[in-house]
Amino acid sequence: MNPPILEVSRLRIDFSANQRPLSVIDDLDLTIREGELVGIVGESGSGKSITSLAVMGLVPSPPGKIESGEIRFKGEDLTKATPKRMRQLRGNEMSMIFQEPMTSLNPVFTIGDQIGESIRIHARVGKKEAKRLAVEALNRVGIPRAEEVIREYPHQLSGGMRQRVMIAIATVCNPSLLIADEPTTALDVTIQAQILDLLRSLNREAGTAIMLITHDLGVVAELCDKVIVMYAGQVVEEGDVRSILMHPKHPYTAALLESVPGRDADRERLISIPGSMPAPGTVTQGCRFASRCSYATGKCRERVPPLFEVGNDHVSRCWLNEAK
Protein backbone atom coordinates (compact mmCIF):
# COMPACT_ATOMS: atom_id res chain seq x y z
CA MET A 1 0.00 0.00 0.00
CA ASN A 2 1.29 3.45 -0.91
CA PRO A 3 2.20 5.91 1.84
CA PRO A 4 -0.49 8.49 2.62
CA ILE A 5 -0.21 11.88 0.95
CA LEU A 6 -3.12 13.53 2.75
CA GLU A 7 -4.28 12.67 6.22
CA VAL A 8 -7.13 14.62 7.74
CA SER A 9 -7.82 13.81 11.35
CA ARG A 10 -10.49 14.97 13.77
CA LEU A 11 -11.09 18.03 11.60
CA ARG A 12 -13.73 20.46 12.78
CA ILE A 13 -14.72 23.54 10.81
CA ASP A 14 -17.12 26.14 12.18
CA PHE A 15 -18.97 28.85 10.33
CA SER A 16 -20.22 31.69 12.43
CA ALA A 17 -23.72 32.92 11.67
CA ASN A 18 -25.04 35.82 13.74
CA GLN A 19 -22.08 35.57 16.14
CA ARG A 20 -22.95 31.90 16.80
CA PRO A 21 -20.49 29.26 15.60
CA LEU A 22 -22.08 26.36 13.70
CA SER A 23 -20.04 23.32 13.01
CA VAL A 24 -20.22 22.35 9.34
CA ILE A 25 -17.48 19.73 9.50
CA ASP A 26 -17.33 17.59 12.59
CA ASP A 27 -14.71 15.06 13.60
CA LEU A 28 -13.71 14.31 10.03
CA ASP A 29 -11.05 11.73 9.25
CA LEU A 30 -9.88 10.82 5.80
CA THR A 31 -6.76 9.50 4.16
CA ILE A 32 -5.64 9.69 0.58
CA ARG A 33 -2.60 7.70 -0.48
CA GLU A 34 -0.11 8.50 -3.21
CA GLY A 35 -1.52 7.84 -6.66
CA GLU A 36 -4.96 6.99 -5.33
CA LEU A 37 -8.21 8.13 -6.95
CA VAL A 38 -10.66 8.79 -4.17
CA GLY A 39 -14.27 9.79 -4.62
CA ILE A 40 -16.03 11.92 -2.03
CA VAL A 41 -19.76 11.55 -2.33
CA GLY A 42 -22.64 13.30 -0.65
CA GLU A 43 -25.61 15.59 -1.12
CA SER A 44 -25.26 19.34 -1.42
CA GLY A 45 -24.35 20.73 1.96
CA SER A 46 -22.72 17.55 3.23
CA GLY A 47 -19.43 19.41 3.62
CA LYS A 48 -17.47 17.91 0.74
CA SER A 49 -16.55 21.19 -0.90
CA ILE A 50 -15.62 22.88 2.37
CA THR A 51 -13.37 19.93 3.20
CA SER A 52 -11.52 20.38 -0.07
CA LEU A 53 -11.21 24.13 0.47
CA ALA A 54 -9.83 23.43 3.95
CA VAL A 55 -7.13 21.23 2.45
CA MET A 56 -6.21 24.06 0.06
CA GLY A 57 -6.27 26.58 2.90
CA LEU A 58 -9.02 28.50 1.11
CA VAL A 59 -11.88 28.33 3.60
CA PRO A 60 -13.43 31.80 3.43
CA SER A 61 -12.52 33.37 6.74
CA PRO A 62 -14.51 35.02 8.20
CA PRO A 63 -17.06 33.40 8.56
CA GLY A 64 -15.28 30.02 8.37
CA LYS A 65 -12.68 28.79 10.83
CA ILE A 66 -10.79 25.57 11.30
CA GLU A 67 -11.62 24.94 14.93
CA SER A 68 -9.54 21.87 15.62
CA GLY A 69 -7.92 18.84 14.05
CA GLU A 70 -5.06 18.32 11.63
CA ILE A 71 -4.63 18.32 7.88
CA ARG A 72 -1.37 16.56 7.13
CA PHE A 73 -0.03 16.88 3.60
CA LYS A 74 3.07 14.74 3.11
CA GLY A 75 3.42 14.80 6.88
CA GLU A 76 3.23 18.61 7.21
CA ASP A 77 0.32 20.00 9.26
CA LEU A 78 -1.33 22.56 7.00
CA THR A 79 -3.50 24.01 9.75
CA LYS A 80 -0.28 25.44 11.21
CA ALA A 81 1.32 26.49 7.91
CA THR A 82 1.98 30.19 7.22
CA PRO A 83 0.14 31.92 4.36
CA LYS A 84 3.44 32.04 2.46
CA ARG A 85 3.98 28.30 2.83
CA MET A 86 0.41 27.65 1.69
CA ARG A 87 1.00 29.76 -1.43
CA GLN A 88 4.10 27.70 -2.18
CA LEU A 89 2.07 24.50 -1.97
CA ARG A 90 -1.05 25.68 -3.81
CA GLY A 91 -0.88 25.26 -7.54
CA ASN A 92 2.43 23.49 -7.14
CA GLU A 93 2.27 20.45 -4.85
CA MET A 94 -1.50 20.44 -4.70
CA SER A 95 -4.03 22.10 -6.90
CA MET A 96 -7.70 22.28 -7.53
CA ILE A 97 -10.22 22.45 -10.34
CA PHE A 98 -13.74 23.72 -9.90
CA GLN A 99 -17.26 23.01 -10.95
CA GLU A 100 -17.88 26.00 -13.21
CA PRO A 101 -15.36 26.23 -16.03
CA MET A 102 -17.37 29.16 -17.44
CA THR A 103 -16.62 31.41 -14.50
CA SER A 104 -13.50 29.88 -12.98
CA LEU A 105 -11.17 31.36 -15.57
CA ASN A 106 -10.41 35.06 -15.45
CA PRO A 107 -12.22 36.59 -18.47
CA VAL A 108 -9.70 39.41 -19.04
CA PHE A 109 -6.46 37.44 -19.31
CA THR A 110 -5.38 35.15 -22.13
CA ILE A 111 -5.20 31.40 -21.61
CA GLY A 112 -1.43 31.63 -22.00
CA ASP A 113 -1.21 34.30 -19.28
CA GLN A 114 -3.26 32.21 -16.89
CA ILE A 115 -1.26 29.02 -17.34
CA GLY A 116 2.01 30.95 -17.47
CA GLU A 117 1.20 32.67 -14.18
CA SER A 118 1.06 29.32 -12.38
CA ILE A 119 4.39 28.32 -13.86
CA ARG A 120 6.11 31.59 -13.09
CA ILE A 121 4.92 31.65 -9.48
CA HIS A 122 6.35 28.24 -8.73
CA ALA A 123 9.30 27.82 -11.06
CA ARG A 124 12.06 30.24 -11.91
CA VAL A 125 11.59 30.32 -15.63
CA GLY A 126 11.59 33.10 -18.20
CA LYS A 127 8.65 34.24 -20.28
CA LYS A 128 9.64 32.15 -23.28
CA GLU A 129 10.08 28.98 -21.28
CA ALA A 130 6.77 29.60 -19.50
CA LYS A 131 5.08 29.94 -22.87
CA ARG A 132 6.61 26.69 -24.09
CA LEU A 133 5.47 24.91 -20.94
CA ALA A 134 1.97 26.37 -21.31
CA VAL A 135 1.70 25.02 -24.86
CA GLU A 136 2.95 21.67 -23.63
CA ALA A 137 0.37 21.63 -20.82
CA LEU A 138 -2.41 22.39 -23.32
CA ASN A 139 -1.23 19.61 -25.59
CA ARG A 140 -1.22 17.23 -22.65
CA VAL A 141 -4.88 17.93 -21.84
CA GLY A 142 -5.81 17.34 -25.47
CA ILE A 143 -6.40 20.87 -26.73
CA PRO A 144 -5.88 21.14 -30.47
CA ARG A 145 -4.00 24.13 -31.97
CA ALA A 146 -2.51 24.95 -28.56
CA GLU A 147 -0.17 27.55 -30.12
CA GLU A 148 -3.20 29.68 -31.00
CA VAL A 149 -5.25 28.93 -27.91
CA ILE A 150 -2.66 30.47 -25.59
CA ARG A 151 -3.36 33.84 -27.24
CA GLU A 152 -7.12 33.46 -26.87
CA TYR A 153 -9.44 34.51 -24.06
CA PRO A 154 -11.77 32.20 -22.10
CA HIS A 155 -14.91 33.47 -23.86
CA GLN A 156 -13.57 32.17 -27.15
CA LEU A 157 -13.56 28.57 -25.88
CA SER A 158 -16.35 26.08 -25.19
CA GLY A 159 -17.16 24.79 -21.70
CA GLY A 160 -15.33 21.51 -22.19
CA MET A 161 -12.28 23.33 -23.54
CA ARG A 162 -12.28 25.68 -20.59
CA GLN A 163 -12.37 22.77 -18.17
CA ARG A 164 -9.39 21.30 -20.03
CA VAL A 165 -7.63 24.64 -19.63
CA MET A 166 -8.43 24.57 -15.91
CA ILE A 167 -6.91 21.09 -15.70
CA ALA A 168 -3.88 22.34 -17.61
CA ILE A 169 -3.46 25.21 -15.13
CA ALA A 170 -3.89 22.87 -12.17
CA THR A 171 -1.45 20.26 -13.42
CA VAL A 172 1.21 22.35 -15.11
CA CYS A 173 3.47 22.13 -12.05
CA ASN A 174 2.91 18.36 -11.69
CA PRO A 175 1.12 18.36 -8.34
CA SER A 176 1.03 15.21 -6.25
CA LEU A 177 -2.57 15.90 -5.23
CA LEU A 178 -5.36 17.23 -7.43
CA ILE A 179 -8.71 18.12 -5.94
CA ALA A 180 -11.51 18.08 -8.48
CA ASP A 181 -14.69 19.66 -7.14
CA GLU A 182 -17.53 18.34 -9.32
CA PRO A 183 -15.46 18.90 -12.46
CA THR A 184 -18.09 17.56 -14.85
CA THR A 185 -21.36 18.74 -13.32
CA ALA A 186 -21.65 21.79 -15.57
CA LEU A 187 -20.72 19.96 -18.77
CA ASP A 188 -22.57 18.00 -21.48
CA VAL A 189 -22.66 14.24 -20.98
CA THR A 190 -20.35 13.55 -23.93
CA ILE A 191 -17.84 16.10 -22.68
CA GLN A 192 -18.12 14.68 -19.15
CA ALA A 193 -16.76 11.35 -20.34
CA GLN A 194 -13.81 13.07 -22.03
CA ILE A 195 -12.92 15.02 -18.91
CA LEU A 196 -13.18 11.90 -16.74
CA ASP A 197 -10.92 10.03 -19.16
CA LEU A 198 -8.46 12.87 -18.92
CA LEU A 199 -8.47 12.71 -15.10
CA ARG A 200 -7.99 8.96 -15.24
CA SER A 201 -5.02 9.16 -17.55
CA LEU A 202 -3.53 11.92 -15.41
CA ASN A 203 -3.83 9.61 -12.42
CA ARG A 204 -2.41 6.59 -14.23
CA GLU A 205 0.37 8.28 -16.18
CA ALA A 206 1.57 11.05 -13.87
CA GLY A 207 0.65 9.20 -10.69
CA THR A 208 -1.25 12.22 -9.37
CA ALA A 209 -3.50 11.41 -6.42
CA ILE A 210 -6.97 12.74 -7.15
CA MET A 211 -9.67 13.67 -4.69
CA LEU A 212 -12.81 13.69 -6.78
CA ILE A 213 -15.78 15.42 -5.24
CA THR A 214 -19.07 14.45 -6.80
CA HIS A 215 -22.65 13.56 -6.12
CA ASP A 216 -22.72 11.21 -9.09
CA LEU A 217 -22.20 7.59 -8.05
CA GLY A 218 -21.91 6.60 -11.70
CA VAL A 219 -18.76 8.71 -11.97
CA VAL A 220 -17.41 7.13 -8.82
CA ALA A 221 -18.08 3.61 -10.07
CA GLU A 222 -16.31 4.35 -13.30
CA LEU A 223 -13.27 6.14 -11.97
CA CYS A 224 -12.42 5.74 -8.32
CA ASP A 225 -10.43 3.24 -6.27
CA LYS A 226 -11.91 4.32 -2.98
CA VAL A 227 -15.10 6.09 -1.87
CA ILE A 228 -15.81 8.33 1.09
CA VAL A 229 -19.48 9.02 1.72
CA MET A 230 -20.20 12.21 3.64
CA TYR A 231 -23.38 13.25 5.36
CA ALA A 232 -24.01 16.47 7.30
CA GLY A 233 -20.34 17.20 7.84
CA GLN A 234 -19.27 13.68 8.79
CA VAL A 235 -17.85 10.66 7.05
CA VAL A 236 -20.55 7.97 7.24
CA GLU A 237 -18.96 5.27 5.16
CA GLU A 238 -15.56 4.74 3.63
CA GLY A 239 -14.06 1.89 1.73
CA ASP A 240 -13.04 0.21 -1.47
CA VAL A 241 -15.27 1.25 -4.38
CA ARG A 242 -16.33 -2.31 -5.17
CA SER A 243 -17.38 -3.30 -1.69
CA ILE A 244 -19.25 -0.05 -1.09
CA LEU A 245 -21.19 -0.16 -4.34
CA MET A 246 -21.97 -3.86 -4.03
CA HIS A 247 -22.46 -4.09 -0.26
CA PRO A 248 -23.19 -0.71 1.28
CA LYS A 249 -23.09 -0.90 5.06
CA HIS A 250 -24.73 2.40 5.85
CA PRO A 251 -28.43 3.06 5.17
CA TYR A 252 -27.55 6.45 3.66
CA THR A 253 -25.16 4.93 1.12
CA ALA A 254 -27.74 2.29 0.33
CA ALA A 255 -30.38 4.97 -0.19
CA LEU A 256 -28.02 6.97 -2.43
CA LEU A 257 -27.43 3.89 -4.56
CA GLU A 258 -31.18 3.23 -4.71
CA SER A 259 -31.77 6.71 -6.05
CA VAL A 260 -29.41 6.34 -9.02
CA PRO A 261 -31.72 6.33 -12.07
CA GLY A 262 -31.68 3.42 -14.48
CA ARG A 263 -30.34 0.72 -12.19
CA ASP A 264 -33.64 -1.07 -12.29
CA ALA A 265 -35.10 -1.06 -15.79
CA ASP A 266 -38.76 -1.72 -14.97
CA ARG A 267 -38.90 0.86 -12.23
CA GLU A 268 -41.04 3.78 -13.33
CA ARG A 269 -40.58 6.37 -10.65
CA LEU A 270 -37.28 7.74 -9.47
CA ILE A 271 -36.58 6.92 -5.87
CA SER A 272 -35.58 9.72 -3.55
CA ILE A 273 -34.53 9.85 0.08
CA PRO A 274 -37.41 11.27 2.12
CA GLY A 275 -36.77 14.38 4.17
CA SER A 276 -33.78 16.66 3.91
CA MET A 277 -30.37 16.95 5.47
CA PRO A 278 -30.35 18.64 8.88
CA ALA A 279 -28.94 22.17 8.88
CA PRO A 280 -25.59 22.59 10.66
CA GLY A 281 -25.98 22.71 14.40
CA THR A 282 -29.50 21.29 14.55
CA VAL A 283 -28.62 17.69 15.45
CA THR A 284 -27.14 17.70 18.91
CA GLN A 285 -27.35 14.04 19.79
CA GLY A 286 -27.53 10.69 18.08
CA CYS A 287 -26.96 9.77 14.45
CA ARG A 288 -27.36 12.67 12.02
CA PHE A 289 -29.19 10.48 9.51
CA ALA A 290 -31.65 9.05 12.08
CA SER A 291 -34.55 11.31 11.14
CA ARG A 292 -34.51 10.04 7.52
CA CYS A 293 -33.48 6.46 8.22
CA SER A 294 -36.04 3.65 8.01
CA TYR A 295 -33.91 1.44 10.30
CA ALA A 296 -33.49 4.01 13.07
CA THR A 297 -34.00 2.82 16.65
CA GLY A 298 -34.09 4.63 19.96
CA LYS A 299 -30.36 4.13 20.33
CA CYS A 300 -29.71 5.88 17.02
CA ARG A 301 -31.49 9.00 18.25
CA GLU A 302 -29.59 9.09 21.51
CA ARG A 303 -26.01 8.07 20.88
CA VAL A 304 -23.63 9.12 18.13
CA PRO A 305 -22.43 6.03 16.29
CA PRO A 306 -18.67 5.59 15.89
CA LEU A 307 -17.06 4.29 12.70
CA PHE A 308 -17.34 0.49 12.79
CA GLU A 309 -14.94 -1.75 10.93
CA VAL A 310 -17.17 -3.73 8.56
CA GLY A 311 -14.71 -5.33 6.24
CA ASN A 312 -11.25 -5.08 4.81
CA ASP A 313 -10.56 -1.32 4.88
CA HIS A 314 -14.27 -0.59 4.97
CA VAL A 315 -15.87 1.44 7.78
CA SER A 316 -19.44 2.55 8.46
CA ARG A 317 -20.90 4.97 10.98
CA CYS A 318 -24.05 3.01 11.82
CA TRP A 319 -25.21 1.14 14.90
CA LEU A 320 -26.51 -1.66 12.67
CA ASN A 321 -22.91 -2.74 12.23
CA GLU A 322 -22.21 -3.04 15.92
CA ALA A 323 -20.76 -6.36 16.99
CA LYS A 324 -20.99 -7.96 13.60
Binding site: L58, L105, H122
Partner: peptide
Protein backbone atom coordinates in the same frame (compact mmCIF):
# COMPACT_ATOMS: atom_id res chain seq x y z
CA UNK B 1 -16.01 35.79 -8.38
CA UNK B 2 -14.88 32.25 -8.95
CA UNK B 3 -11.78 33.27 -10.91
CA UNK B 4 -10.52 34.88 -7.70
CA UNK B 5 -10.74 31.48 -6.00
CA UNK B 6 -8.92 30.00 -8.99
CA UNK B 7 -6.17 32.59 -8.69
CA UNK B 8 -5.75 31.83 -5.00
CA UNK B 9 -5.72 28.10 -5.71
CA UNK B 10 -2.77 28.73 -8.06
CA UNK B 11 -0.81 30.24 -5.19
CA UNK B 12 -1.05 33.84 -6.41
CA UNK B 13 -0.08 36.35 -3.73
Amino acid sequence: SEYIRTARSKGVH
